[in-house]
Amino acid sequence: KITVTFNGEEKARRYYKKMQKHNLKVEIRVENNQWVVHVE
């Protein structure tokens, strides 16, 4: 499981979509004013 933190929504969403293309289970959320993407 990987957790990647971004300081911008745009970058986070781009990464999220990229990971989805690989058929990975991805989850995006905001934690402590940071955009966090969890990849299983």
Rank of each mutant, 00 (worst) to 15 (best):
A12L: 03
Y16M: 14
R29Y: 14
H22G: 06
T5P: 04
N23M: 07
V36I: 12
N32A: 07
N7K: 10
K11G: 14
I2S: 06
K1I: 12
V4L: 10
G8S: 15
Q34V: 13
E31Q: 08
T5F: 13
M19Y: 04
Q34D: 03
N7C: 14
K18S: 09
T5V: 14
E9G: 04
R29H: 13
G8P: 02
V30K: 14
V26R: 00
E31G: 04
N33M: 07
Y15C: 05
T3A: 07
V30Y: 15
V37P: 00
W35G: 00
K25E: 06
Q20M: 13
N7Y: 10
V36F: 07
T3M: 08
E10K: 13
W35L: 02
H22Q: 13
Y16F: 12
V39I: 12
V39F: 06
R13P: 03
K18R: 12
I2Q: 06
N23E: 05
K17W: 10
E27K: 06
N33A: 07
N7M: 10
V39M: 05
V39R: 02
L24H: 09
H38P: 01
E27V: 10
Q20V: 11
W35C: 02
N23V: 04
E40F: 15
R14K: 11
K1F: 13
V36W: 03
K11L: 14
R29P: 00
K1W: 15
K17M: 12
T3P: 02
K18D: 07
K21M: 13
T3N: 04
N7H: 09
H22K: 14
N7I: 08
W35I: 03
W35N: 00
V39K: 01
N23H: 13
K25N: 09
E27F: 09
E40T: 12
K25R: 10
R13V: 08
V30F: 15
I28V: 04
I28F: 03
E31A: 06
E31N: 06
G8L: 14
V26A: 07
N7R: 10
A12R: 03
N7Q: 11
K1G: 14
N32R: 06
I2Y: 15
K17D: 11
A12D: 01
N7S: 13
F6Q: 01
H38M: 14
K18C: 15
E40H: 11
V37H: 00
N23A: 10
E9Q: 06
Q20C: 13
N23F: 13
K11R: 12
K1Y: 14
N32M: 06
N32I: 05
K18N: 08
V39E: 00
H22S: 09
V30W: 12
N33G: 15
E10M: 11
N33S: 07
K11S: 15
E9N: 03
A12E: 02
W35R: 00
K1M: 12
K17E: 14
M19N: 03
N33C: 10
W35T: 01
Q20H: 05
N32K: 06
I28M: 08
V36T: 07
E27S: 13
G8N: 15
H38A: 10
N7L: 09
E27Q: 08
R13G: 02
N33W: 04
R29D: 05
F6K: 01
N33Y: 05
V39Y: 05
R14M: 10
K21N: 09
N32D: 08
I2A: 05
V36H: 04
N23Q: 08
R14Q: 13
I2N: 05
E9S: 04
Y16T: 03
T5Y: 15
H38G: 04
E27W: 09
Y15F: 15
R29V: 11
Y16R: 03
N32T: 03
E40R: 07
Q34Y: 10
Q20P: 02
T3D: 04
I28C: 07
L24C: 13
A12H: 04
L24I: 10
V30A: 08
Y15Q: 01
V39P: 00
I28L: 11
K21T: 08
N7A: 11
Q34G: 05
V39Q: 02
H38V: 15
L24K: 08
E31D: 06
R14C: 13
H22P: 04
I28Y: 02
F6N: 01
F6A: 01
